[in-house]
Nucleic acid binder design. Structure first.
Ligand code: SF4
Ligand code: SF4
Lengths: 133, 133
DNA sequence: TGAAATCAGACTATTTCAGTCCTATTTCCT
DNA sequence: AGGAAATAGGACTGAAATAGTCTGATTTCA
């Protein structure tokens, strides 16, 4: 249940790389350094861009760079950018979705699961990219 | 990545039920009460039994009962009993497996992931069945 | 103008998960 | 003794999520 996806792992490696380099790096460069499938990493970088964690520069001599200091990017945000399921249960929806669980009404563990969700988020959010260096 | 499996959800409901009832309850009874697929729940109960969280009684008038007080059963243990992946990465294996990741040697995020694993476990382990009542 | 890079979407293959089915065994009650 | 009700355990199927690949478009610099 708490195994992180390859997307997140790759994303963390990439962010770590960008933090270390301090400047602009290409997806190819990061892929080579970390032995990460290039095409998959490319997608990950795009997701990180959309989330606003990194900036991108197109064309030759392009690449990616961090938009914030490593210590101000916490892992919760990275997970939110790269993972489908960011909640412990489907009834806890980040954007108030209505595709919620069927047993929503009869469910007896909904409330405590909410509490757990908070604690988990705190755990993940307590770590930053700076702690990967 | 942190969506808990149905097995865990059902397991928590069942343990909550057992804690509330205080005595012996059958899988059928719990299944009916929580609208849980009976066959799947039956498997879950068996897993909980194997982990040593509950005791079972076979035959007519049989069923399941808690082996410990609700406040001494934490969710980390439940997850361990019911979930395949209890670690954040595959290189963190509970029983020192050797099916570890290929990039184990070149990986640059292994150490911090270990730290995160600990924090996550603390979060999950900090909640007990008693908090579901 | 061409090479190198991001951007975007569709696609396939693999693995995981939820759920079902079937049979054996145990135990109580009549 | 025998049947009903329960757990035990394995095999199986279908659906869904994930990992990875492919193709083409666009941007930008030299
Ligand atoms: S309502 Fe209950 S069963 Fe449904 S997703 Fe939420 S916690 Fe799980
Ligand atoms: S070694 Fe690195 S890449 Fe492999 S599982 Fe561990 S953290 Fe992930």
């Amino acid at each position: 249940m708490l195994r992180l996806s390859k997307r997140v792992e790759y994303g963390l490696m990439a962010l770590q790389y960008l933090a270390k380099s301090g400047g602009v790096a290409t997806a190819r460069e990061i892929s080579d350094a970390g032995q990460i499938p290039y095409e998959l990493l490319a997608k990950v970088m795009q997701s990180l861009k959309h989330e606003g964690i990194i900036d991108s520069y197109q064309g030759v001599r392009g690449g990616y760079a961090l938009l914030f200091s490593p210590e101000s990017i916490n892992l919760a945000r990275v997970v939110r950018a790269l993972d489908e399921h960011t909640t412990i249960t489907e009834c806890i929806s980040p954007s108030g979705d209505h595709d919620a669980c069927q047993m929503l009404h009869t469910c007896t563990i909904k409330a405590p699961m909410n509490k757990l969700q908070q604690r988990m988020e705190e755990s993940i959010g307590s770590m930053t990219i700076a702690e990967l260096l």
